[in-house]
Each structure stands twice: as C-alpha cells, then as structure tokens.
Amino acid sequence: MAEEKVEFKEIVLKPKYKFKVPVESRHISPDSFAGKTLEEIGKLVVYEGSRKKVLGELFSFEGEPGKTAAETHIIIEGDVEKLRRVGESMTGGKITVKGSIGHYTGFKMKGGTIIIHGNAGLWLGGKMVNGFIEVFGDAGDCVGGSLRGEKPGKGMKKGTILIHGNAGAEVGRGMKGGAILIDGNVGPLPGVDMAGGSIGVKGDCEGKPGARMTGGRVVILGKIPDILPSFYIDEIREPPIKVGPERLPGPLYVFIGDVLADMRCMGRVMVSVQSNPQLKMYEELLT
C-alpha cells in the first residue's frame, strides 16, 4: 500500500469500564468524528446492549479529530473486545486498536486504514468496498465476507486485509475482488462463493478451499486435507504468485474449478507441492 503523507490529528478513546455486554456504535469512524469537538463526539449514539447511550458515557477522549476523515486518526486503547462496528463505512483516515476488537470491524469500509494490534472478531472487513486492514493477532470467521443468503460476489470488492495470526472459517466468503493475506492457519472453506480477488494462506487450511468459486484465486502454502472433487489439476506453477503486497512462492499445484458453480472453471486453488505430498497422485494426470 502506498504510504501517503498525511498530517493526522489523533484522538484517543479509552473505555471507562469493562464492558460486560456487546457495545455497538456506527459512529466510531473518522467520518463521524471529523470536524467535531470532543463534546459533540461524546454525544454520538452508542448502544451498550439494549441501552441507548452516548459515547461520552462509555469512553473518555483525549486529543482531537482532524477536519476531515482523511486527517483523522482514532486510537482505541484498553479492553474493547466487545466493541463492534468500529470503522463501519469509513471513507478515509486511520483507526488503531491497541488491543483486541469485536465483530464487524471495518464493515463496508470505503477507504482508509485500520490497524489492530490484538485479535479481531467475526466479519472483519465484511463487504469491504476499499481500504486497508492489518491485524497482528488472529481474526474470526468470514473475513471480508458477504452476509448470509447473499449471492456470490457480494463480499469484499477491493482493498487489502493482512492477518498476521490465524483466521477462522470462510475467509473471503463471497468476495469479488481485493486481497486477503494470512500468515497463520485458516479454518475450512476459504474463498467459498468467491467471484474474484485473491486469498493467500501461509499456514494450513482445515479444508475445502475454493468451494463454489467462480473466479479469483486461493493460495495455500501449508497443508490441506484434500482438494475438492469439483476441481481439476491444471499445472504445477514454479514462479511465485502475487497476493496483496506479497509474492507467495512456488512450486504450487494449480487446480481450476469449481466446475459445479461455473463450467468455465475460472477459479484457481493453488497449494504448495512440498506441504501436500498426499496430492502427488495428481501429477500423473498432468503428463
């Protein structure tokens, strides 16, 4: 991601006490904070469970936001594991979470940056339109994902999500574009219902990569139990393959599919040759 020279104004949020129930606000984003005084920000609506409150009751504030979203850097310190929808629909600016954060972080975000030092909950960057998210810990299920019942391709459109730890099930569920890169392991079904974009997993995958994909690619450097029967071996790729900011190394078995979702087999699942000796028998089909 190109580093832009921006003069950020920083505003620090700290929870006033330990949250016992989910806390939800669609206003914790640079767009909502920009140009407001701390007092005004303190009056923005937040739900603590079913109790409608204002941000000032739950958080203390220091610093100030920028005049625009792009100039606003929100820093969240303390235990905010139960805080949801941070950065929802933001168009620019930056959010840094010093610990772990809850669900729907960066949901439908259109631009800007979210950095999470700890873990993130479910649906991180769900339906992302564009932007950049980096998690140093683990992420929950459905990273960059679409919502239930939605057609394939309704997930992430553009942007980059980097996860240095592990991620859960259904990474990139229904994604259409953009890149998700995971240093650790992932649960089952990465790239399920995928129509485009790329997913890279440096660790292991619990199984069923690329289920029902109609486009895009899923690259796994670690172990998978097996490839789905609806995929066909296409080649062994030696050169590295780009996923997000990195090039993941070969040699990789390249499978095309998912023939049951689209007979044209435009999706690609690439798995490490070295990590997956159980797939060696596919080599015979290449000769």
């Binding site: 199984g207 289920a211 097996d226 789905l228 029967p229 066909y232 049951l260 089909l285």
Partner: peptide, 21 residues
Amino acid sequence: GMDYELITALRMAVKDHTIEA
C-alpha cells in the same frame, strides 16, 4: 469431516463430470 467432499463428488457424477481422484 469429509461428507462435503463426498457430496460434491456425487454431484459431479450425477452431472457426468469427470472425477479426477
């Protein structure tokens, strides 16, 4: 843990697609 794979293979067979494995 591989019922999904088996069902997929059955779908392939029902539609007369070749199963490689």
